[in-house]
């Protein structure tokens, strides 16, 4: 087997939707890659839609020493379930290391098929408690990504008590919602000529004006990213200045959200985090280096946030290094 166990004490994971995005990205900072887009089955060349794309991708990533996960639809209807079954079989036979699961029905199908591949519970699986994580473990889950609203203190309990690994969103847009209908199209997905190109372009939803009516002091206008079948935070989650604390709380799996971003974003953000993680893991003095800050700022036009981890509003940034002065509108 060309695949080798990672010797690093931590894992930096990247999400990538398609073969093209994979090819364009410098993957060297990453230990693992999660393939596919869970929001929409119609995203161009979606790994989660085309199991036939998986064998080559899995083999080449394994050859490069990386683990490979495959995501699954976040809210499949009954009519989507035959596809889910094909996807489970395709991911397992391609040798992927885990299936990312957001929907409990998908998790049950996986167990009914004898758990041919372990499950990683995704951002929409609503993991809030260690008890829920334990139930999912019994269905084949070995890793959970707690819901965005779950604080670091709560994650520590899950990590200690549930017998599963805990993955945290380290950097990138926070998934805030999934929708039934594509919000970028006027007609049905099947016939609207805008699909699947519409979500390749950037679309930002903004409300309120800085200093406008109803504005609370210290907070900029509100920005969200509209990706058609999902709503993401406008700001980027960022934990780079908190890495030593996260490591001391037992967090080892750090995800960079690469969906709906550029190849430069995926490559350069990953490189900054790889360097930051190495420094934090070394255990000595730790400080955010100016070059990391410069890269992260360049790729985050609406600024940073991490409030959920500290029991605050999701859009707030808690920290002293990268806060403030970065709102776009």
């Amino acid at each position: 087997m060309p695949y080798r166990e990672s010797s690093t004490a931590s894992e930096l994971v990247l999400t990538v939707a398609s073969p093209r995005e994979l090819a364009e990205t410098d993957l060297s900072p990453y230990d693992s890659v999660c393939l596919g887009n869970a929001y929409c089955r119609r995203v161009a060349e979606n790994f989660a839609e085309h199991p036939g794309l998986l064998p080559d991708a899995v083999a080449s990533l394994h050859a490069a020493g990386k683990k490979v996960y495959v995501t699954s639809p976040a809210a499949p209807r009954g009519r989507d379930m035959p596809h889910v079954e094909r996807l489970i079989d395709g991911a397992a036979s391609a040798g992927a290391d885990a299936l990312e699961v957001h929907n409990m029905g998908v998790l049950r199908v996986l167990r009914e098929r004898g758990i041919p591949i372990p499950a990683h519970m995704g951002a929409f699986a609503n993991v809030y408690t260690h008890l829920a994580a334990k139930v999912m473990r019994d269905f084949g889950a070995v890793r959970v990504r707690p819901n965005a609203e779950v604080s670091l203190a709560e994650m520590s309990v899950i990590s200690r008590e549930a017998g599963v690994e805990v993955e945290i969103l380290a950097h990138g847009k926070i998934p805030l919602g999934i929708t039934e209908k594509c919000f970028l199209l006027e007609g049905p997905e099947e016939t609207d000529p805008g699909c699947p190109a519409a979500c390749v372009e950037e679309h930002w939803l903004t409300a309120g004006r800085p200093g406008g009516r109803g504005q609370r002091s210290g907070e900029g206008a509100w920005v969200l990213k509209n990706v058609g079948k999902g709503v993401l935070s406008g700001k980027d989650m960022c934990v780079v200045e908190h890495l030593p604390r996260l490591l001391s709380e037992g967090i080892r799996i750090f995800k960079v959200e690469g969906l709906y971003e550029t190849a430069a974003y995926r490559s350069e953000v990953g490189a900054a985090y790889r360097e930051a993680l190495s420094l934090a893991l070394a255990g000595g003095a730790y400080a955010v280096l100016p070059r990391w800050a410069q890269v992260l700022r360049k790729h985050s036009p609406n600024g940073f946030c991490n409030g959920y981890y500290f029991g605050r509003s999701g859009q707030i940034y808690v920290g002293t290094v990268l806060q403030g002065g970065n709102s776009r509108v």
Partner: peptide, 8 residues
């Protein structure tokens, strides 16, 4: 499956 409110 929505956290738009608490994000605000």
């Amino acid at each position: 499956r929505c956290t738009m409110s608490s994000y605000t």
